[in-house]
Design a protein around this nucleic acid. Structure first.
Lengths: 182, 182
DNA sequence: GTCTATAGTGGGATAGAC
DNA sequence: GTCTATCCCACTATAGAC
């Protein structure tokens, strides 16, 4: 369970700090996520945070872990759905998570990951549904890239204001399903 | 011609400043691109730059324009090639430009564009080759998203170190070509 | 585990003289 | 068009008292 893992890894106070950081990030974006602001929202001073986390990067890493756990859960739930094709369900889940949590999503994808500092198996768990749906490693990577590209261009406001993003998704899903049927 | 456009829009001194900024960005990345550093590389002081550009953002915008001009030229050249399929050629050109100029590429795609401040027709020119090759707007957007996703995940170091990125590109190109043949 | 105080760094931008 | 001087901002992080 997601909650159990998080709870087991973090002391209660650390979890409160991560939660405060998350709310700041979600509400006001990455530039608002400063140690001062996190501390202030908890009624403490910034230096006190360093008794709980060695540096800011470690705190951000916890947010990334939360993002992976939540998106993995969303993908697993999508794969369990029978109403639509697996690829279609996964695409909707991917886009849905990214749009609901754009700043966390960007944090998760904007830079190289320190794989060795993530909970064992977490990356695999998040990637497995797509790999299963696509049936090949190369196909799964292409599918991930397509979904990421659609999502990040949307989040970054790079499609024209009147662009039919739904249609682009449908075209992409169609292409992936034809690849799958090879 | 790219050079003519740039030359017409910028005074010689402004062009020198843009060129210095570009070299810093390409060599040392976005965090190195500061007004102080740009000035120092030109043998001047930071405040003097503000006689040429009203703010840092305006200078960055010139770099984005350069990126669009160069990548548009690369796409046009790729489309003129007859050796491979158009989609394949464009994919290679897209990846090639992004890998050769990762920091400029990130600058071009990381945030919303102030469309009204770009030279008229530039965005259209950069997008046209892909639109032509895909034959539909939705297909072109899916193709752009796929290419962008593959490229930005590669640049950001998000594929496993031993991942076969060439194979992911081949799978993606195959999917797009099947979509094209609808 | 929290505080105060502070170090140390870096950034964008402006005023006014030359 | 360039300079010097300066402002103001913000950040991460540490030391040491309580």
């Amino acid at each position: 369970m997601t909650t159990v893992e998080t709870g087991a890894r973090l002391t209660p106070r650390r979890r409160e700090i991560v939660e405060a950081a998350r709310q700041i990030l979600e509400r006001d974006g990455e530039s608002a996520l400063t140690m001062r602001r996190v501390a202030a929202d908890l009624g403490m001073k910034a230096p006190s945070l360093y008794k709980h986390f060695p540096d800011k990067e470690s705190l951000e890493l916890e947010l990334i872990i939360v993002g992976f756990e939540e998106s993995a859960a969303a993908f697993e739930a999508a794969l369990a759905t029978q109403a639509r094709s697996q690829i279609e369900s996964l695409g909707a889940a991917y886009r849905g998570y990214a749009r609901a949590h754009p700043h966390i999503y960007r944090l998760m994808t904007d830079r190289p990951l320190p794989h060795e500092r993530l909970p064992v198996g977490l990356e695999y768990r998040a990637a497995a549904p797509l790999a299963q749906a696509m049936g090949s490693v190369a196909g799964a990577r292409a599918a991930w890239a397509l979904a990421h590209g659609l999502v990040i261009l949307e989040i970054n406001g790079r499609f024209p204001a009147d662009a039919d993003i739904d249609a682009a998704w449908r075209a992409g899903i169609t292409a992936l399903e034809r690849l799958r049927q090879t």
